[in-house]
Each structure stands twice: as C-alpha cells, then as structure tokens.
Design a protein around this nucleic acid. Structure first.
Length: 609
RNA sequence: GGUCCCGUAGUUCAAUGGAUAGAAUAGAAGUUUCCUAAACUUUAGAUGCAGGUUCGAUUCCUGCCGGGACUACCA
C-alpha cells in the first residue's frame, strides 16, 4: 500500500512534469507534516524547486496545489501557500477508508517478504562474568533490529558469538581451582554466571596483591605484572587448554556450563534468543587459511620474527598484526574466519554486527581486510555501533565496583512495577500468577523502552531514579494507553459482531453523500488516523536508520495523542452511533498499532494494569 | 601525538538544510458524580564560543573551548 506521503510525492512529480515538462525525483524536494500552527496536513517544501523552474514560490505553489488536487481529489482537497511552503489537506473520506480497511488488521504497516537475508549478531557475552547494563542495551537493540528487519520483509538470522575461551576465562578457572574448595553454584545457592564472575573478581584481587608485593620488592610495575605467579599460572593454563589438557578442558567445560545455566535464565527473562550460536572455542582457529591467500595477493607480509601483518596506513589506519610469531591467531584473525563461516553457512546479503562503539576501529579493520582479500561478503558487513551506557557519576568501571548488574536491575524494575501497581490498587482481584506476569511486563517494558528510546549511536546516561519512572516518555505510559483501550473495547464488547465490519463502509459513505461537509472528522480524530497511517513510514525509517528509537518515539507520540483524544471525546458514549463506531475503530486500530510497535521493541502489552 | 565521536531547557532525550528548535521529567497552576488520574490541560525554561557557505544552519565547513572512545603479539 502506498503511504499518503508517497502518494503526495508522486503527485508532485507528476504535476511538475505535466505543468512544466521537467522531471524531478522524490529526492529533489521534501514533504513533511504541516506544523500545527498552519492549515493543512502535509507540506511540500518548494525552495529546492524554484531555481530550476524559475517560478516564484507563490506561483509555483498555487499552480502545483491546483494541479495536485484536481488529479487526486479523492485524497487531497485543499491547499494553501505560505512563503515557500505548499500545505495540503487530506480528505476525511480517504482517511476513513484507511480506518475501515485496517482497523482490525494486525499486520498493518508491515511489509511482505523481499527475499533478502540479513544476519544480526548481538549480545556476544564473555563466559567469565555476568551480564551488565551494557549487555542489556546490546541485547535489546539487537533483538529489536531483528524484529524491525522482519517487519520490513527481510529474512533474519539472529546470532551470537560466545567468547568462551582465552586468558580471561582461565583467570576465573584458576581462581576457582585455588580458592573455591570445590564449591559449586548449587552448594552456594548462587546463579552460575555470578558464581563464576565472583572468581574472576577474586583472581584480580589476588593478582593485584601479588603485583604490589613484587613492586615492594623492587620490581617495576611491568615486571611485577608479568612475573606474578598467578599470571604465569594463567598463561600456562591457556597453553594447557590449547594443548587439550584433559583436566583443564574438564574444568573449563564445567565452569562454562554453570555460566550458560545462568545466562539462560537471564536471556529467558529478558526475552532474548538466537537462531544460531557460535562458540569462540570452535571458531578461534578459523581464519588462518586466508593468510596464504593474502601472501599470494601481496596484501600480507611477514616480519623477521615470523609474525604476519597487514599495512593499512594508506587507508588512514595502522599496521595490524594478523598472526603471532608462533603462528597462533589473534582476535581479528578469528573474526575474519567467523565472518567467512557465517557467509558460507547462511549466505546473508547483509551481516549486521551489534557491537559497542569502542570497537569502531576493530570493525573497520575487519571490513577493510575482508575487502582487500576480495571476500564476497565484505561489503555486506555493517557495524551497528552503539554508545556506552554511562551512569550519572560517569563511566561504569568494574574496578570501581559501580557496574549495574543485569539481573539486579531486572529485579529492581519488577519490584518497582509491583510497588506502583499495589499503590494504585486497580487490579486487586488478579491471581498471584497474573500479578507476577503483570509486574514482569511492566518492569521489563519500562527498562526496554528506556534503553531503546535513545538513538543507538549515541552514548546515553542511565539514571537509576529516572529510569524507574513509569510516567511520561516511558514503556508503562504506552502500556497504560493500550490497557485503557482494551478496557473500552471489552466494555462495548459486541460492537464488531453487532455492527459487522462490512457494514461500516456503507454507513460512512452514505453519511458522506448526505453531508459533503469536509469537517466530518474532529481534529483529534483526524490527527489520530493520520498518525496511524504513518506507522509503515516509521517502520521503514527505523530500518533505514537501524534505530529502534524511531519506533519508540512514534509509538509514544501516538499514545500521547490518543490520551488527549480519550480525555476529550467519549468513545462508548459518543454523540451518535456513527461517531461511536468511528471512535471504536480508531481505538482498536490504535491498540493494534501500539501492540505492533511495542512488539518491534520486544515489549509485551497488558490488557489491564 | 594520531584517528574518530559528542556538546540543545536544571536533568534525560528529539529535530533527511526549512516556518515561532519539539518532548519527558523536575518547578508553578489547574482537571475526577462521566470509557482506568500510571492520564489530561495551562505555564515558565535551551542550540558551548567565534567565523564561513546560502534565500534559510541545531544540522554542512574552519578554528577554539569542554567531554569521551580508540590507538595490544587482550577479547
């Protein structure tokens, strides 16, 4: 279905050709919503056209307006020109038609399949510590982007690379071995990922002590850090791991399984899931084979110590190591290998990496090397770079112990939802189970909305006090609007059955014939239908910008407008039966679009709250 | 040092080069015999500084000031 904005753009292009025999494209001019202080619904900005056409804005505007209306009278019926702006009004009949056709169409605004496949990699945790606030932003963005792509007709594969090996994993393993006395998550009643994370912290504490001791004995900091027994033991453990030492591998498997159990709980709770999980332990050796190719193409070169490098200085970057002197691969190498494997297994047209902006350089290097090697998937790599989440006090630093733990935060949000709900006392007859479900829906809704309402590219501040707010530009605000609509629809209950959706068009069109006055829709009614019609535009824009915040802003605006409408006009007790049906249709369609939008953000809707 | 990002109401966020820079929250003042007041209405409050590009700049360019990230044979 063509949106009103597209229709208007087409009409402008057609009119320009018909009137002045000059062709323009959609990109040559702008169409936006008309500002509320002017009359009209959509505005064509004429400035960019007047140069080529050698017309004054006033003349161009009226000639264009006249022509557009004459040729599209079912959609546009009135115009005015102010300065360089042509304001056009949409007919009530057209908007009513959209409403009648779509008020109970739950897939309204979504696009049908376009045959393109996109892979979205997100989350990508380390198995040495529990998830924190930053991971939550990553997870919510990744999940939402996948939904937004689906709504735009893409075939989406959600994936995750688990960083389950390496020196950092060995640190928690070693600490457990030395200090745990064979304790387990079960024996200590601790969630597995937190349990292992505690030993990672323990390692760092003990390591720090050793380093300080050595420095007290006259060593420099560098020497002390290298010579500390714990560090040496960790490095030995990594070597043993790579040599498939049975005991080390067994310990590694055991501790990782604890972490996976913990992650599974968290993922389930926050609603994250993946179609395919890659494990670094299985992919870290990949990527070495491209080295030979690279030598042949004279892209890579060897240094005296046997290490292999690529020179990216011509592209404004540095020289980058791809293989160590001993022939083992580094991060970038296995990432290239993984990228290749992804391509070979799934053949996506595009591969989106949801990765923090501290890795901008790394991802740039990754894509550039792939390009230089002539990999077919190189151009499809896209880094969806998101900013860090700061606290009001500044950056989260695990060393300073001010990391916001994901599980704690979820608990806190749900608890806050509970307190608010109990205070308001609107759902007293809910069962225990219904209440718990409601608290989760509200708490998670508040948290997801808070983290997704900001453009991913931007660094954002997480304010514990404000984020728990359930008023204003928040998830619960939108959820509340939805619940209210459900309440009205439930109360009126039988309207669809009694009236029948196929009867509505007759009634409205009859009314139109009898009453050709253009003011059939009240301002807020019209505003809402216009907004609802823009849903698919928001979905498209969210994809173009790869930003869930577009949806969050849209749905908030919609809910806000509906609340004004709800306060201003009675739905169930409307002036007459026709108005009642109109408003019920608006309410139902608003509820559907709200639920659809929030689904794109991974947020569920309560029927009551 | 080099590369890149960011400076918008007290605070947190908006604004493909377009009309009088929008919201939310905190502040002030109101709205409940009537579909859920987690709501609605009114009010006050901002583009770091200095230039440039043009009909028009929060947006593009240059310089300065302030904040941040990256610049590992860690991942």
């Amino acid at each position: 279905m063509t949106t009103i904005i597209e229709t208007l753009k087409n009409a402008v292009v057609e009119s320009l050709l018909a009137l002045y025999t000059q062709s323009f494209t959609h990109k040559d001019f702008q169409v936006s919503e008309t500002k509320p202080e002017f009359e009209g619904d959509y505005t064509v900005v004429l400035f960019s056209l007047i140069k080529n056409l050698k017309k004054s804005p006033a003349v161009l505007g009226s000639e264009l307006g006249e022509h557009i209306i004459k040729n599209n009278e079912s959609i546009f019926y009135k115009y005015n020109v102010i300065k360089g702006f042509l304001n056009i009004t949409v007919t009530d009949e057209y908007l009513s038609g959209i409403l009648q056709k779509n008020y109970n169409n739950k897939s309204f605004g979504k696009k049908s399949g376009n045959g393109k496949k996109v892979m979205v990699e997100y989350s990508s945790p380390n198995t040495n510590k529990p998830l924190h606030l930053g991971h939550l932003r990553n997870n919510f963005i990744g999940w939402s982007i996948a939904e937004i792509l689906k709504a735009n007709g893409y075939d989406v594969i959600k994936t995750c690379i688990v960083n389950d090996r390496g020196i950092h994993i060995c640190k928690s393993m070693l600490a457990w071995k030395l200090f745990a006395n064979a304790a387990t998550p079960q024996s200590t009643h601790t969630k597995g990922d937190h349990f292992v994370g505690d030993y990672y912290v323990k390692f760092n504490d003990e390591y720090k002590k050793q380093v300080e001791e050595l420095m007290g004995a006259g060593k420099t900091k560098d020497e002390a850090e290298k010579e500390a027994p714990l560090m040496k033991a960790t490095q030995q453990m990594l070597v043993d791991w790579e040599n498939n030492d049975l005991q080390v591998k067994e310990l590694w498997r055991k501790m990782n399984s604890w972490v996976y159990d913990g992650f599974a709980l968290t993922y389930k709770r926050i609603g994250s899931d993946f179609d395919k999980i890659f494990y670094e332990s299985e992919t870290y050796l990949l990527g070495k084979d491209f080295v030979y190719e690279g030598f042949e193409k004279k892209i890579l070169y060897k240094k005296d110590d046997g290490s292999v490098w690529i020179d990216l200085t011509e592209d404004g970057l540095d020289e980058k190591l791809v293989l160590r002197g001993d022939g083992t691969s580094v991060y970038i190498t296995s990432d290239i290998g993984l990228a290749k494997q992804k391509y070979e297994q799934y053949r996506p047209d595009q591969s989106i990496y949801v990765v923090g902006d501290e890795q901008n350089y790394h991802l740039k290097v990754l894509q550039l090397i792939c390009k230089k090697l002539g990999m077919p998937f190189a151009d499809g790599i896209y880094h969806l770079s998101y900013g860090m989440v700061d606290l009001p006090s500044g950056k989260m630093k695990s060393r300073e112990g001010n990391v916001v733990d994901a599980d704690d935060l979820v608990d806190e949000m749900i608890l806050t939802a509970k307190m608010h709900t109990e205070e308001l006392g609107k759902v007293k007859e809910f069962t225990e189970e219904e209440l718990n479900t409601l608290y989760e829906i509200l708490g998670l809704g508040a948290m997801k909305f808070y983290l997704l309402r900001v453009d991913p590219k931007k660094r954002m501040v997480f304010n514990p006090g404000e984020s728990i707010d359930f008023h204003g530009f928040t998830g619960p605000f939108v959820q509340y609007t939805f619940a209210r609509i459900q309440s009205v629809l439930k109360k009126v209950g039988s309207w669809q059955l009694a009236v029948g959706s196929n009867e509505i068009p007759d009634k409205v069109s009859t009314a139109n014939e009898q009453q050709p006055t253009p003011n059939q829709l009240l301002p807020l009614e019209k505003k809402l239908i216009l907004l609802l019609e823009q849903y698919s535009t928001a979905i498209t824009q969210a994809r173009d910008e790869l930003s869930p915040s577009v949806i969050a802003n849209y749905v908030f605006h919609l809910a806000k407008t509906f609340n004004s409408f709800y306060t201003e006009h009675s739905i169930a007790n409307a002036e007459d039966e026709q108005k009642k049906i109109l408003r019920l249709s608006i309410a139902e369609m608003t509820a559907n679009v709200i639920a659809g939008s929030m689904q794109l953000l991974g947020i569920k809707m309560p029927d009551r709250m």
